[in-house]
Nucleic acid binder design. Sequence first.
DNA 1: ACCTGACCTCGTCT
DNA 2: AAGACGAGGTCAG
Length: 279
Amino acid sequence: MKDNFEVNIDDTINSGQVFLWKKFDSKWYGINGKEILILEDKLDIKSKNIHNFFRFDDDFQKIKKQLSKDDIMKKAIKNFPGMRILRQDPFQCYISFIVSSNSNIPNIQTRLQKLSRKFGEKRTIDDKELFLFPKPEKLANASITDITKCGLGYRSKYVKKAAIAVSEGTIDFSSLKKQDYQEARDSLCQVFGIGKKVADCILLFSLDKLEAVPLDRWVLRILQKYYSKEFQISTKTITEKTYDELHDKIVEHFGKYAGYGQQFLFKNERESFDKKWLG
DNA sequence: ACCTGACCTCGTCT
DNA sequence: AAGACGAGGTCAG
């Protein structure tokens, strides 16, 4: 029996992994692909969807214990002990992070909301109008002009091409899940608009690759601030090469659940700067 | 191989 | 109130 009470829903949703969530009164309403999830203060872990989404199949205590290699990480875990990594719908996750590049959370959220409203199916639940995430075919057939209307800017062509790759079967998420981390990442990086960072987000948040560690501006800043000796960080900008070198060092230090670790550090640091989450 | 600049858009700050 | 700034990167040269 897993510790349902230990999950902190607010911290989990507001940790930059999901964007299509909104709180009405005390309930969270969220879109996960073609599902709508509604969360109250207690999670119904008997629900297959909830069990899967919150990764109750992970041994969370063991993961936290394995990650606790140093004081910085211990403190981050202690501050947000109920934050989990979610297992998202892969296509939604894939598009979400393609759209995230060179942007911020409020902007990402707006873009995804507009995309869903324009291209997703409408559902009415509890008097609320919600839109499912668009299907791959729908985005693949959309015009660049219409996608651009959702505020994606130069990312519009990334989204269209990426959606085509999925609808044509060039990208197949169930195969990627079966591949190992490196192999799956290489496949994702073939897609126009996906670099290593975005690939790592997709792998960690939807394809069960817990050793994926997205190295973004924040994580870099965190590593420079607290781990500069540990990981011998010299450069300020991430290049193709330094990305992989750093990643290897991180996995070596934190182990195979390093992705969870990244999430704790990210959440902890951003909270200390009082950055905005979902609005 | 590496490095640098450009890039759409929008919320936020001044 | 208008204008500048920068944000969970990626691509092209």
